[in-house]
Design a protein around this nucleic acid. Structure first.
Lengths: 210, 210
DNA sequence: AACTGTTTTAATCGTTGGTTTAAATCTGTA
DNA sequence: TACAGATTTAAACCAACGATTAAAACAGTT
């Protein structure tokens, strides 16, 4: 088994288990036995459990933010006005597409993102902000441009409302979908849900202040 | 120290610590030493850590749902049409008021609610659904009535979008507020934020399907 | 084939967790 | 004041955790 093999097997197993149960509830023993590698491999290759957690986030956030940056470049240089709906579509399409292209599950990353916000892991928040804060500010800046006349504080609160609706819904997608299927017999796919989310979130961002 | 004293001291400490760090990350030793009671008191009075977690939720959800039911009764029997904005205002006012009346912190309960959704605690989700599912369905039913013509599946997804925006934002209120204060020098209170949230969430729920 | 640095392995360390126990203490009642 | 049940206490139990170690196995180079 080559080194890269062991490293990626650990990352694969950790990604799935962290998303399912959270960080503290997932032991290194569970991760390594799922991955089929020795317990000591995590400390050998990553140093510590904390650094493993960061590596899991790095592996999906780096290509995600890179692809999003390209997508935003394309929209901006296209010359035409950047709309709220267009930006949300870009965000969701990149989240779906760039990850699905790697054969990875988009919902899993939403769950991980949700955990990054809610779990008590100071090091993780610091890691994400320092590494991906620029991408976040770029997107927020473009969205603010698409909403002229909105005062900055109101805009930022609504940005968090939008993030909350997105992360909360998609990270619990399976559970919500199961409830709707049971109550209405109607299946919902992730792309369908994102199509519902774009106009809803856009309306929330755009509503006139009163 | 009387029994009720010990029990409520444990609940007080557990409530704060759970909201700060999550369930797994908070040990019974931390809880009992914060509360100034013996370690064994938790198992003596509650049976186990799981049952303590449920008791923390019961102590704030029971008065909350009770007050909300009274508030909804008042709105319905008043005769006039029940509006989306009115229902959201009721929800938020009860969340703020009925808890603040007990001298307890509303944001803390939002964090706990967020944890109930995101943390890996199957027993807690089952407990809440079985105990408070009726209250949830009552509110959702009235909200659906206030949105005639919206197909049920779209309505339910938007209901979750609204819950996500609310729970996510308010459970991270302190962190978000700190960022906004640093960037804009503008302070936001919780009531102000709820005043921003009502029209934004209402617009999201009411936007025409396309 | 012999050597060298890298990786894997099994075993162990020290710590912390939830829970249990039995004795001590308290509280209310007769 | 003496008794009975409820509560509190200090101590211990045992399982699980992250981390470390030294030896074994491996891979690439000469």
């Amino acid at each position: 088994m080559s080194q890269t093999d062991t490293v990626s097997r650990i990352l694969d197993a950790a990604e799935v288990l962290f998303a399912e149960r959270g960080f503290t509830e997932t032991s290194l023993r569970t991760i390594t036995s799922t991955a089929g590698v020795n317990l000591a491999a995590v400390n050998y290759h990553f140093g510590s459990k904390k650094e493993l957690i960061q590596a899991v986030f790095e592996r999906f956030l780096t290509p995600f933010t890179q692809t999003l940056a390209d997508e935003l470049d394309r929209r901006v240089t296209a010359g035409q006005a950047v709309t709220v709906e267009g930006l949300l579509e870009s965000l969701y399409r990149v989240g779906m597409g760039s990850l699905a292209a790697q054969g990875r599950d988009p919902q899993r990353f939403m769950r991980l993102l949700g955990l990054a916000y809610t779990q008590y892991q100071g090091h993780l928040r610091r890691f994400i902000v320092s590494r991906y804060g620029d991408s976040y500010r770029r997107f927020a800046g473009l969205l603010a441009q698409a909403l002229p006349g909105l005062d900055p504080v109101t805009f930022y609160w609504r940005l968090y409302f939008m993030l909350g609706a997105t992360i909360f819904t998609l990270s619990s997608f399976d559970a919500i979908e199961a409830i709707l299927r049971e109550d209405f017999g109607a299946e919902s796919s992730l792309p369908e849900t994102l199509e519902r989310l774009v106009p809803a979130a856009a309306a929330m961002l755009k509503v006139d202040a009163d």
